[in-house]
Design a protein around this nucleic acid. Structure first.
Lengths: 228, 228
DNA sequence: GCAAAGTATAATGTCGACACTTTTGGATAA
DNA sequence: TTATCCAAAAGTGTCGACATTATACTTTGC
């Protein structure tokens, strides 16, 4: 992906650019020390990824994912994750299964030492491992491009409460993979994906309750976030 | 989608632009009576859809889908179609099921009168109906954008031999939907999707055997197809 | 004081131009 | 002939400029 698009995508999915934030090409061009053309290209790319909305003739902004859309996306993601883990088990060598268990061990370890960032990182590594080794490059691209859209401002949060559950689920899935039980692995990852959806929805409603004294339309000066 | 992108996409998926055909932005800009900027935008869009390849600094060309990629895409498509038909059955009203049967009746009718184009059109209408009514707009977008990539030069062909099979399969699926048997419907549509894959692969190898006296690299004048 | 209308500012989408790279096609050498 | 090199032609990616359209601010009327 283009460097500019990747940068903006990261800013969005790591929460530095909130949903609705202004993405006018002039400011971005200045920020990236380039003309508007490559910026426009990047924004169009991100629009297709679903991270950005570009209403005709209006300024692009960070996409605002509705509750119902979250549900839609997670339903698709659950199905694709199921296919992914099946493909993984079909393609994986025994050595790779061992590698997988090493990755899970890292999760366990950081959970034991109460290191939340390390734990989330380890979980990511494990999941990415499955994706990378599933042997279906189109599926990889699809899942990766959606990961961004999903993980929008997910990290941090109050994931601490869920560490146990996440650890347990991933342990089960790792075991199922170890035993090459594709049906079980599929069922597990689908259930896990749906649990992830619940977490997102909770967070979203919590956020909506706290940070919305007003409908937030028609503000005087919009999004002072990226004012140098 | 942009008008230009849609036009080019149609030319590709209906076979007027063969895989590998040149898509340089100058000619396209002339053809669409515009500057290169909107053309470039369209090509980038189509690249993301998978219909076009744009090597850096080189001329864009119609994407060439490899055998293994076909397999990958169909595996994903099978899973998504399964989800789609489930979602359809969850969302569909009884009236819509009646409408569905009307559409299937049209298929039967055109098969009886040996009208192949009408038959394929009716099949498309039925399938699009399911997609349109599945109630998951993200899934709709995804399936639609892939349909193009799949149906690349599919129509016509020797589908005549397969009319019976297609009719039978769609009949079964329609019936399963009528009875709201989601599990059966899913199994059927997955099997149908895989059959579609077989057809594509057959056609592709047939074509490869016939139309490839040479590796087709380094030709003197490439693709005189779009010379006005 | 508040809403509506009007004006000024700012951003969009498209264009033609430019420097640089790839491709073409021919000239040269083996 | 066939391969290698070189110059001319063509194409790419990026830029700044422009007309058009949206937004922000100010003035006007109530």
């Amino acid at each position: 992906m283009g460097q500019i698009a990747a940068d903006i995508a990261r800013d969005i999915s790591e929460g530095r650019l909130a949903p609705g934030a202004d993405l006018n090409s002039v400011e971005l061009a200045a920020r990236f020390a380039t003309s508007r053309t490559p910026v426009r290209e990047a924004l169009l790319l991100l629009e297709k990824e679903g991270l950005v909305e570009i209403p005709a003739r209006r300024r692009p902004r960070v996409a605002n994912i509705s509750i119902s859309e979250v549900a839609e996306l997670y339903e698709i993601r659950a199905a694709l994750n199921g296919l992914m883990i099946r493909s993984f088990l079909r393609a994986a060598t025994d050595e790779e299964l061992v590698e997988m268990e090493t990755l899970f061990a890292a999760m366990t370890e950081s959970a034991r030492s109460d290191d939340l960032p390390a734990f989330l990182y380890a979980r990511n590594r494990l999941h990415n491992f499955w994706v990378d080794k599933c042997g279906n490059s189109s599926l990889q691209r699809l899942l990766r491009s959606w990961k961004m859209r999903m993980s929008v401002s997910r990290l941090g949060g109050d994931a601490r409460n869920d560490v146990d559950r996440i650890l347990r689920d991933n342990g089960r899935l790792t075991l199922a993979c170890h035993e090459r039980d594709a049906n079980l692995a599929e069922a597990l990852i689908i259930s896990m994906t749906k649990f992830g959806e619940q977490m997102i929805l909770q967070q979203q409603s919590a956020r909506a309750a706290v940070a919305k004294p007003r409908p937030a339309l028609r503000k005087k000066n919009a999004s002072p976030a990226n004012r140098a």
